[in-house]
Lab assay of single mutants.
Amino acid sequence: SADYSSLTVVQLKDLLTKRNLSVGGLKNELVQRLIKDDEESKGE
Rank of each mutant, 00 (worst) to 15 (best):
S1E: 11
S1N: 12
S1G: 12
A2N: 12
A2P: 14
A2W: 13
A2V: 14
A2D: 09
D3N: 10
D3W: 15
D3F: 15
D3E: 09
D3P: 11
D3C: 15
D3L: 12
D3I: 11
D3G: 09
Y4R: 01
Y4D: 00
S5Y: 15
S5E: 12
S5C: 15
S5I: 08
S6Y: 08
L7I: 02
L7P: 00
L7Y: 07
T8C: 06
T8H: 04
V9E: 08
V9Q: 05
V9S: 05
V9P: 04
V9A: 05
V10I: 12
V10K: 15
V10T: 14
Q11P: 00
Q11N: 04
Q11D: 06
Q11C: 07
L12R: 00
L12D: 00
K13L: 08
K13A: 06
K13D: 02
D14C: 15
D14L: 14
L15C: 05
L15H: 04
L15V: 05
L15W: 04
L15P: 00
L16M: 03
L16N: 01
L16T: 01
L16G: 00
L16C: 12
T17G: 08
T17V: 10
T17R: 15
K18I: 08
K18R: 11
K18N: 07
K18Y: 07
K18A: 10
R19Q: 01
R19W: 03
R19K: 04
R19D: 00
N20Q: 08
N20W: 05
L21P: 01
L21T: 01
L21S: 01
L21A: 02
S22E: 09
S22G: 08
S22W: 08
S22F: 08
S22Q: 08
V23W: 06
V23Y: 06
G24K: 15
G24D: 15
G25S: 02
G25Q: 02
G25R: 02
L26Q: 11
L26K: 13
L26C: 09
K27V: 06
K27Q: 06
K27Y: 07
K27M: 06
N28Y: 12
N28R: 09
N28K: 10
N28S: 13
E29F: 04
E29A: 07
E29N: 05
E29K: 05
E29M: 06
E29I: 06
L30D: 01
L30M: 10
L30G: 00
L30H: 01
V31N: 01
V31S: 03
V31M: 07
V31P: 02
Q32Y: 07
Q32F: 06
Q32I: 07
Q32W: 08
R33V: 03
R33T: 04
R33F: 04
R33H: 02
R33S: 03
L34A: 02
I35Y: 07
I35T: 07
I35R: 09
K36C: 08
K36Q: 11
K36T: 09
D37S: 11
D37H: 12
D37F: 12
D37E: 04
D37R: 05
D38C: 05
D38E: 05
D38I: 05
D38S: 04
D38N: 04
E39D: 07
E39G: 07
E39C: 09
E39I: 11
E39A: 10
E39Q: 12
E39L: 14
E40Q: 13
E40R: 14
E40A: 12
E40N: 12
E40F: 09
S41R: 15
K42G: 10
K42Q: 11
G43W: 12
G43A: 12
G43K: 14
G43M: 13
G43Q: 12
E44V: 13
E44Y: 14
E44I: 13
E44T: 13
E44D: 12
E44R: 14
E44W: 14
E44K: 14
